[in-house]
């Protein structure tokens, strides 16, 4: 564990809490892509199957359980409890466009051809692109609530901080996993346009509105 890993994990946790609180406090999930949330739930479930097979640390187990449970809770709030507020007309990105290529790529490029390893690799690839339905929804409506912007910023920072963690681990632990690194890089790049708008607009007290 290094400082980048820890802050990355905390950014991830913060993002999840921001989203749940936003939905709960406003009793609304408008502006939130239910599809991205379903994809994240699939990511956590397929990645954290190792909860049943190996124990790493109390921290590791606790965080994995929090991610799985909170993502399930988010999906429940969007599709059941506050479903009347869900922007289904704008949330039109096709999930299979992300899921199917991720499955194919995981079957082709992975460390070992075992069920657990392919599912883990699939989760890494799917996570890299799982935010696309959310970014698509924001681009369709042309704006995002400030709280949604904070959520996206925290969620985007997390994999960026992991990139620094991987550089650290390469130098100090001689650890290198190209699958995580390349996917994490792609994931972070997808947020760049949003990061720019966040810094130039939201941090200056304005709402996130896309340029026409």
């Amino acid at each position: 564990m290094n400082i980048f890993r820890l802050t990355g994990d905390l950014a991830h946790l913060t993002a999840i809490i921001i989203l749940l609180l936003k939905i709960w406090k406003t009793r609304s999930c408008s502006g939130i892509s239910g599809k991205s949330q379903i994809l994240f739930t699939v990511v956590y479930i397929t990645r954290y199957l190792d909860l049943f097979t190996n124990y790493i640390s109390a921290y590791n187990t606790l965080m994995k359980i929090i991610f799985v449970v909170s993502s399930l809770a988010t999906v429940f709030l969007i599709y059941f409890k506050f479903k009347a507020t869900y922007d289904r007309n704008h949330d039109t990105f096709r999930m299979e466009f992300l899921i199917i290529p991720s499955i194919i790529l995981a079957l082709l490029i992975r460390h070992e051809f075992t069920v657990m390893e392919v599912l883990w690799t699939f989760s890494i690839y799917l996570e890299a692109v799982a935010i696309l339905p959310q970014l698509f929804l924001v681009s369709k409506t042309g704006e995002a609530e400030t709280i949604t912007s904070h959520y996206l910023f925290a969620l985007g920072s997390y994999r960026g901080l992991y990139l620094l963690n991987w550089i650290w681990r390469y130098y100090f632990e001689n650890f290198l996993d190209w699958i995580s690194i390349v996917a994490g890089f792609v994931q972070t790049v997808l947020y760049c346009d949003f990061f720019y708008l966040y810094v130039t607009r939201v941090l200056h007290g304005r709402k996130l509105r896309l340029p026409a």
Partner: peptide, 10 residues
């Protein structure tokens, strides 16, 4: 590096 090494990450 081996396949199982990255699994301590989240």
């Amino acid at each position: 590096q081996h396949a199982t090494t990255g699994k301590d990450e989240l």
